[in-house]
């Protein structure tokens, strides 16, 4: 099994496009998005119940090898520092990649 990094990011939905841009710059083109998730944190309650991206969070995760991850790490740190949110990095083992 291949060893990889699973990068999980929870951000305000409004910043999703900026995060995806950042992934693309790091040559990370595959990711999964779960929209309209709820929770509470430093920026108050996010209830995901309004026609407004400010009140909902989005969860994004991606898998990448260590080399790509190391290239992105400082950019993600700056991103979270500026826009808020959480980034969790997990050592993962991937059973099988989908064939292109």
């Amino acid at each position: 099994m291949e060893k990889m990094k699973k990068v999980e990011v929870i951000i305000e939905s409004i910043y999703l496009n900026r995060l995806i841009e950042l992934f693309k710059e790091g040559n990370v083109t595959g990711y999964t998005i779960i929209r309209d998730i709820e929770g509470a944190g430093g920026h108050g309650l996010k209830t995901a119940d309004e026609a407004n991206d400010l009140l909902s969070n989005t969860y994004v995760f991606t898998l990448c090898n260590e080399e790509k991850f190391n290239r992105m790490i400082e950019k993600i740190r700056a991103f979270i520092d500026k826009y808020g949110g959480k980034c969790i990095v997990i050592d993962a083992e991937v059973l099988l990649h989908s064939k292109k």
Binding site: E12, I14, Y15, E50, A51, N52, D53, L54, K82, Y83, G84
Partner: peptide, 12 residues
Amino acid sequence: IAVPAAMRLSVP
């Protein structure tokens, strides 16, 4: 809705 969204983008 509209302004808070624009402010969140421009004045994070």
